[in-house]
């Protein structure tokens, strides 16, 4: 049972107050995209043991969607941050690297 801090209202929310929304930082593909790109967008998901980015909604609360960076193995939460971003902000990446030296976002430094 996780506790995640909603970056919008600051509440340390119990998992039962949250709704999970799967992997974060997907890029929407619409009309005009290739079959492969579109099918990856719909179906292909990361499932790492380790650092992962997820979408959560503070459903029984302020109603806002946010992102969480956490370790799927240890359940350590590196950061939660607003969802209005296409990739994790630098502060989040730094927070992760502090705990997981050598980690890089999508393999790029």
């Amino acid at each position: 049972m996780l506790i995640l801090t909603c970056p919008y209202c600051g509440i340390e929310a119990d998992e039962t107050e949250l709704a999970s929304g799967g992997e974060a930082h997907l890029t929407r593909h619409g009309p005009g995209t290739s079959e492969d790109d579109f099918s990856n967008y719909l179906f292909t998901r990361q499932n790492p043991l380790g650092v992962h980015f997820e979408r959560w909604r503070h459903a029984h609360g302020c109603g806002k969607w946010f992102h969480a960076a956490r370790d799927t193995g240890t359940l350590e939460v590196f950061a939660t941050y607003p969802a209005q971003t296409a990739e994790p902000p630098k502060t989040v990446c730094d927070a992760i690297r502090k705990r997981r030296p050598g980690w890089t976002w999508q393999g790029t430094a």
Partner: peptide, 13 residues
């Protein structure tokens, strides 16, 4: 309602 909020908050913010 949640569907609308999701798209507004996470894609077309």
């Amino acid at each position: 309602h949640a569907h609308m909020e999701e798209w507004l908050q996470t894609e077309w913010w």
